[in-house]
Nucleic acid binder design. Structure first.
Lengths: 262, 262
DNA sequence: TTGTGTGAATACCTTCACAGCT
DNA sequence: AGCTGTGAAGGTATTCACACAA
């Protein structure tokens, strides 16, 4: 680290900060786009702009992976694509099951970016017997009864829950019992899982509420600014010309581990 | 306008930390459930368990809102529901438009939690003329041409983008030009917006990649740990054997989980 | 000269632990 | 005695700014 030959390909899944991990997919997407345009190299500045972060952060992030850039030049696009893919574990195949094939489940099943990066929809599962056999996105829906055997037969370790909230914990328990160790939860519920199981959640309602909070604050500031300007007898500043929050603010990413109810 | 309702003394600076804001909806959901069961009060410990956080964090979070608890007793459920709702801006009505009514857009339109918290789907908008007039979730889909007038006529400040990636930036630009200042983006693209506009994104692919990273690491640790047991003949039995490695992240908001390995 | 890689500085978040109110 | 509210401590993440390689 200090001034020495940090030549070791840092290949180790060493302690990459979680915040960095969460941004790697972003970089990867930007890099893939560059790759498709046959761009050979990028600077941290350019890539950062494409990914919506600042360049210092990007360089710091990459420094955790190793020294993959060339000073004075930039990063080799193809090489970086490979390194990040490997780091994220995308060079292998990840069979995924989606449980709950309503509108949302169907949307997920149809989502192209799914297959594009090592993820393969191994099965679609729904509790409605009427759905069984019906193809969604070209894959026949299977009944919940098959859940355990599907997981085991396909070596599935990642499950996506797109059921109603009421069914989510039960589905989760079954997935975990059958061997799933990573869960992406779209149901608006806190899932509790044993240690060693990762849960990430995606929740429309929460995101909207966060937006509402900021929106409300904007309205307040605007009004206050207007009042101030009025008192000063000057024209109000063009409304939203304030340094609110980050313009290119991010998405989800977390906190909140599930706690075992003792 | 900004009601200067800081009648409380001391440490109540203008800004509630972003990490706290991101958890308020979680608390609110847990509190709502308690309220429906007519539970009058909760301790920080109980509420924290229901929300999937630890109690110190919860108390700290609440301390930013004010002193709404009673020492030795806990928090009044109804009162807290109100305070958090107000803080999040949910006591007012937020008209929302959803642009892009495919499977995902339809799923969002049908999502119940939407209306339940002050959000009202003001309009569904799609670029496909064939969709125009067709009702989805009881709301007729309108054509993209109407976008600007819909935004203005309904005073919409929050927009949801559920279009394909290729259309997202353009839709975003039009939303912003028409007056939208908060955007929830489901398209797998980085949106650029002017200052003063908030963007939050929800991205399936990114979430899966983050899970894959941790999954890969688990597999690696397992293999390393299993070196000694390798004599036992069994080959690659994926997962489902060990329950020792921790890691339980998850989450919303800008950035910030935290899981340290060893 | 250009742009990476990184110590150091800063900002932000979480957890601890206990004073203080009920 | 019980539980909140919060300073202080400990971590993590971001940003700065510059030495150094190409």
């Amino acid at each position: 680290m200090a001034t020495g030959r940090t030549h070791r390909p840092a290949t180790r899944s060493r302690g990459i900060p979680e915040a960095t991990v969460a941004r790697l997919p972003l970089y990867l997407r930007a890099l893939t786009a560059l790759s498709e345009r046959s761009v050979p190299t990028v600077s941290s500045e350019e890539l950062a702009a494409a990914a919506g972060v600042n360049s210092a952060k990007l360089r710091k992030d990459f420094s955790y992976l190793g020294s993959y850039g060339t000073r004075g030049v930039g990063y080799d696009v193809e090489y970086l694509v490979y390194q990040i893919s490997r780091e994220l574990g995308l060079t292998q195949d990840w069979p995924v099951v989606i449980v709950g094939i309503g509108n949302l489940g169907a949307a997920l099943a149809n989502y192209g970016g799914f297959a594009s990066r090592g993820f393969r929809v191994a099965a679609l599962i729904d509790a409605d017997p009427a759905m069984a056999g019906k193809p969604v996105a070209g894959i026949p829906v299977q009944h919940t009864d098959e859940l355990e055997s599907i997981i085991r037969d396909n070596g599935v370790s990642i499950g996506v829950i797109a059921t109603p909230a009421g069914a989510a914990q039960q589905v989760c328990d079954r997935l975990v019992a059958a061997g799933v160790t990573s869960i992406l939860n779209f149901a608006p519920t806190v899932l509790s899982v044993p240690d060693g199981v990762d849960v990430r959640k995606v929740d429309l309602s929460i995101e909207l509420q966060i937006l509402a909070f900021h929106e409300q604050r904007k309205a307040g500031e605007e009004a206050a600014a207007g009042v101030a300007a009025q008192a000063a007898g000057t024209t109000a500043v063009p409304a939203a010309a304030r340094e609110e929050s980050s313009a290119t603010d991010q998405g989800p990413d977390g906190d909140v581990p599930a706690v075992m109810p003792a």
